[in-house]
């Protein structure tokens, strides 16, 4: 479990986050929705200790984030960054293997046990056939999977993903989100991610947090939170909703 309590942060005199409360639980997919510039990425940077909150605190379970070293943190929390700029064309297998780094000592080299963990992950993600390809020469969806694989090799409790679907086509978006949902249920992972599409949040989220101008607008079950009123507040768009059984679909009114 990861929770933010009353987290506030100012950058260059501008208030980016204001008393943000948020909780993501094990076994659940928690989706953070909000327009560009609402502070989603900044909040993620705080949650992964890349930025330090000015006020408030972040807890992993019972433990204050500030009391953990980078190494300790990396064994419990793994992140997939929004942008990844490759420089060296590592093989997919070597990229995933890098996730073992926080589990080993400074001068250690990965051993057989680490390689076995990696092989299992490659199989779980269906990447076995791509394992010996440079990760710069595979599709965007496959690369996203490989980066998720690197996270899994850290054997974390918590997985943070900043817009994991932003550069993917629909098929790959659904593939990645299904996988994350599956990981949350089967491995009791705490999965927290940001999305742009409220409908994908409705489909895959167990909990939704709405962020508007650095404040939490609402959080709770998707069917309670993702409705035309809230989405209008977030994006300034008039929304319509259609329901069929338990399914709902939101779309913007065009005239």
């Amino acid at each position: 479990m990861i929770s933010a309590q009353q987290v506030s942060l100012r950058l260059n005199g501008r208030e980016i986050l204001h008393q943000v409360d948020l909780t993501a639980r094990p076994g659940e997919v928690t989706v953070l929705l909000g327009p560009n510039g609402s502070g989603k990425t900044t909040l993620f940077l705080c949650l992964s200790a890349q930025l330090t909150a000015e006020r408030g605190a972040i807890f992993l379970g019972e433990q204050d984030l500030r009391r953990l070293s980078r190494r300790q943190l990396a064994r419990r929390l793994a992140t997939v960054p929004q942008e990844h700029h490759p420089v060296f064309p590592y093989l997919v297998r070597d990229l995933v293997l890098l996730g073992r780094l926080p589990r080993l000592g400074f001068f250690a080299q990965p051993r057989g046990a680490d390689r076995r963990v990696v092989e299992d992950i490659l199989e779980l993600l269906g990447l076995t056939d791509l394992a010996d390809k440079p990760y710069t020469r595979i599709s965007g969806g496959e690369r996203q999977l490989a980066l998720i694989g690197r996270c899994l090799a850290q054997e974390p409790e918590i997985l943070l993903l900043d817009e994991p679907t932003s550069h993917l086509d629909l098929r790959n978006q659904v593939m990645v989100l299904k996988l994350l949902k599956n990981l949350a249920t089967t491995q009791k992972l705490t999965v927290l991610l940001t999305l742009h599409d409220p409908n994908l949040a409705l489909l895959f989220a167990d909990r939704v947090v709405l962020l508007e101008a650095g404040r939490v607008l609402a959080q709770g079950l998707p069917e309670d939170v993702v409705n035309p009123e809230n989405i209008k507040k977030l994006y300034g768009l008039d929304m319509e909703m259609i329901s069929q059984g338990a399914r709902r679909l939101l779309y913007p009114r065009l005239s």
């Binding site: 890349q50 980078r70 990396a74 060296f88 070597d94 890098l98 780094l101 990965p110 850290q154």
Partner: peptide
């Protein structure tokens, strides 16, 4: 030498892999 792989991922990602 293995740690150079992590450092070559850039500051932010290296940090998320537990690198000071």
């Amino acid at each position: 030498r293995w740690r150079l792989n992590a450092l070559s991922m850039g500051d932010q990602e290296a940090k998320s892999l537990g690198v000071e």
